[in-house]
């Protein structure tokens, strides 16, 4: 069953999330525990080009691209270090540039996610409603 967050994703959002996830899995390997979608937020901007959208040869003009989104993604790590942080920022940068949607990762270890500050706060509720990436 598709969750409420994934229901509002457009094609560009899905491509951006998949590109982000694939690059992270390749670069983090065993340091990556889980990826989850936390928030989808529409931005008040003109649509940006998605350089990977499929081109068509039809004479019918394609529909206008949707406004861009911010995609907040949980990146759960087994350990946090400078290399992992650099890999996360690189993946977010490349996916955002290529697809015109902003990847906004929140990286955290399991220990950080279990802290009282997180579990008792608003972020804890968002974690409870997190959905797997498409």
């Amino acid at each position: 069953m598709v969750g409420a967050l994934r229901k509002v994703l457009k094609g560009r959002d899905v491509r951006a999330l998949r590109a982000f996830g694939e690059q992270l899995e390749a670069s983090l390997g065993g340091a990556l525990s889980r990826l989850a979608l936390l928030e989808v937020r529409r931005l008040e901007l003109e649509p940006l080009p998605d350089h990977t959208a499929e081109a068509t040869s039809s004479s019918v003009p394609p529909p206008p691209p949707p406004p861009p989104t911010e995609l907040v993604v949980l990146v759960e790590l087994t350990r946090r270090d400078v290399l992992a942080d650099a890999a996360i920022d690189q993946a977010a940068f490349e996916a955002s540039r290529k697809h015109g949607a902003l990847l906004s990762p929140v990286a955290a270890t399991e220990r950080e996610l279990r802290s009282p500050e997180v579990t008792a706060g608003a972020f804890g509720q968002r974690l409870a409603n997190a959905e797997p990436l498409p």
């Binding site: 400078v82 942080d85 929140v106 990286a107 950080e112 996610l113 802290s115 997180v118």
Partner: peptide
């Protein structure tokens, strides 16, 4: 990259507290 890294560090501090901000990361 610097802009996105800066936004992420601030985002994580806001929701997770100070633990994600180890010295090497803030120096970088």
């Amino acid at each position: 990259l610097a802009l996105l890294a800066a936004l992420r560090a601030a985002r994580e501090e806001r929701v997770l507290g100070r633990e994600p901000l180890y010295r090497a990361r803030v120096e970088a």
